[in-house]
Amino acid sequence: MPALRDLQSAFGRALLQDGRTQSVPRELALDGLTVGIYRNTCFSTLTSALGLSFPAVRRLVGAEFFDHAAREFMLTHAPASAYLNDYGREFPAFLAQFAAAGGLSYLADVAQLEWAVNRALHAADTAPLDLAALAAVDAAQTAHLSFVPHPSVSVLHLAAPADAIWRAVLDQDQAAMAALEPAAGPVWLLIERNAQGIQVRRMAPAAWALTQRLCAGEPLQAPLDESRSGALSEQELNALLADHLASGRFTSWRIPIGDLPS
């Protein structure tokens, strides 16, 4: 008699074999109609979940190709939990190396943007940082401050103008699609959820670079100094930081323990 853990492990392997095995291992099943019914439900549920998270990718490649790509993806990337809004993080990277999609160089970029949008849609509701408490930080310590970005915020640097492609495809805007130039050059994007909904906006490269470093949790000093000596004026720098704080793009701040006054 197989132990429950062994049975579930064998059943799981049979599910992921994608039709190459028609039934559960013989010693497990009495009168199994077929494990294929479970496999179909499993794959169609996950395909639907990916389709909801990557609607523009699905339209770009067509339902049949998308389902094929999704199925190939699932065989090597089963979800870790039933929270399926969180499933598909690796799908953009999978598409980037998926030979069958080789003709669409911008597909993985659109997928990256869609994952960021999905993340923004479903991110936990988290209060922005307390500006009054931040203002009370000792001036000598501000150089060591680092921020924790709101879970809905993503910053993306993409080789293709994925934002324009994404909008045109989802809006089914034929004129915009005809005007698209996938080779038009890179875009620097900020994606977030605010009170008005999901925002996808382009940033200037220097402002994006600073934002990216702050969102990565770097202490304030080095990125600020480098921005000052580079493309951002003091006025632009202050305006950018004020906008980030006022827009609630950070939820908390930290000062490393070693830097706190004793």
């Binding site: 492990s9 799981g12 599910l15 992921l16 479970y38 439900t41 549920t45 089963a78 870790a80 939990s81």
Partner: peptide
């Protein structure tokens, strides 16, 4: 769920 993988059906 088995081995850290979620199989999207009621097995």
């Amino acid at each position: 769920v088995s081995g850290g993988q979620y199989f999207a059906d009621l097995l």
